[in-house]
Each structure stands twice: as structure tokens, then as C-alpha cells.
């Protein structure tokens, strides 16, 4: 139990997926203009990463390792993730239309989110078992959601500020992200 707590705190706060590992940067910069859309993206990411880290964990442990084909992990994982996202989209559309309404737009974008593949590979690299891997996936996604929502909140306020012309748009967002990364250094004492 203590080990799982360490994984959660480590992945969600200390080694934040966006601010210290630079994974999932594209949606972080692209979909963080409004708090609601950021929360929607975060929800979709939590859902997909938790599920995909479970599925890739199962496939790695029970198919690739017994067949001695660990070297195929990159190809297998990316295909599984792409198929999974499609499947989740179709399933939600049929079974839970209200959830689909909320997350639908963000789901196709997730295949190119490098955090999903990144978490699957980190789980293998750190030799997590399936439970630890799934918990790590969930915690990583929570860390992503936390930072994208904070970012969106800051960007909504930045709109009203007088920013030098050259820094408007992309540059000021990057500087904000840099300052957030410094703030997240504060968590490194937790473990």
C-alpha cells in the first residue's frame, strides 16, 4: 500500500508528466485556453491512460514476455492504444451518450498524445506489475489534468494583461509553463 502511495505522489506531483517530463505537451499548449475544455481533455486523458496502461500491461506480461518478443513493444503498444481509443469512442457513443458528449471531441486527439505511449513504456522500464502500472497510469493522468487546469486558469487571466507584442500567444504560454515547472520543483521534497 505504501509503495502504491509513493507511486501516486511521485507520478502526479514530483515527476509531473508535462512539467518535468515534457510528455503530452501538445494538448497542454493547444487545449488550455478555457478551464472547461481543459477539464474535458483532462477527464478523457485520465480515462484513456488508466485503461491503456492496464491493457498494455496485460499484453506485455501475458503475450510479449512469454513469446520473448519484448522488442516489439513500441509497435504493439502504439497499435493497441490507437485501437483502444477507437473502441472507447464507439463504446461511449453507444452506451454512455452523455459522457461521450462531454469527452467526445478530445478522444481522437489522444492517440497522438505522447503521454499515453510514454506511460506504457515507463511501466515496462520500471518493471511495474499490472496493478502498479495501472495506478501509475492513473496518477500520471491526474498530474496531467492538474497542470492543464491550472494552466487554463492562468491563461484566462492572462487575456486581460498588457503583454509586449512579440510575447503574445505562444511565447507567454511557454513562460507561464516554465514558471509552473519551477513551482512544481517545490514538490520534490515530498518523497
Amino acid at each position: 500500500m505504501k509503495e502504491l502511495m509513493l507511486i501516486i505522489v511521485g507520478s502526479a506531483l514530483v515527476n509531473n508528466v508535462v512539467l518535468s517530463q515534457f510528455l503530452g505537451l501538445c494538448p497542454f499548449l493547444g487545449v488550455s485556453k478555457k478551464t472547461e475544455t481543459a477539464a474535458g481533455m483532462g477527464g478523457a486523458v485520465i480515462f484513456v491512460i488508466t485503461l491503456s496502461s492496464f491493457v498494455t500491461g496485460v499484453i506485455y506480461q501475458f503475450i510479449l514476455v512469454p513469446a520473448h518478443m519484448e522488442y516489439l513493444q513500441t509497435i504493439v503498444f502504439i497499435l493497441v492504444i490507437a485501437a483502444l481509443v477507437q473502441f472507447v469512442e464507439m463504446f461511449l457513443k453507444k452506451a454512455m451518450p452523455s459522457l461521450y458528449q462531454a469527452l467526445g471531441v478530445y478522444l481522437p486527439l489522444i492517440t497522438t498524445n505522447c503521454a499515453v505511449l510514454g506511460v506504457a513504456l515507463i511501466n515496462v522500464q520500471k518493471e511495474y506489475n499490472i496493478l502498479q502500472g495501472t495506478v501509475n497510469g492513473f496518477a500520471t493522468a491526474v498530474g496531467f489534468t492538474l497542470s492543464i487546469i491550472v494552466m487554463a486558469g492562468i491563461r484566462e487571466k492572462i487575456e486581460y494583461n498588457d503583454i509586449p507584442e512579440a510575447f503574445r500567444g505562444f511565447p507567454i504560454v511557454l513562460i507561464t509553463a516554465g514558471l509552473m515547472a519551477i513551482a512544481f520543483f517545490g514538490f520534490s521534497g515530498l518523497i
Binding site: 518535468s20 512579440a166 510575447f167 505562444f170 511565447p171 511557454l174 513562460i175 516554465g178 515547472a181
Partner: peptide, 25 residues
């Protein structure tokens, strides 16, 4: 040292993008 750590990456890219914006403007 911060330029080698994570925040430095954001700052350097922000400055380069700002310089590029300046030329475009």
C-alpha cells in the same frame, strides 16, 4: 543551472518564439 533543468527549456523556447514573432511583426 535552471537552464539545464525543465523550466529552462520552456524559457529558451519562449524567447526564440518571441524573437521570431518580432521578425514576423
Amino acid at each position: 543551472t535552471i537552464f539545464i533543468l525543465a523550466p529552462g527549456a520552456f524559457f529558451v523556447l519562449a524567447l526564440l518564439a518571441a524573437i521570431q514573432n518580432k521578425f514576423k511583426l
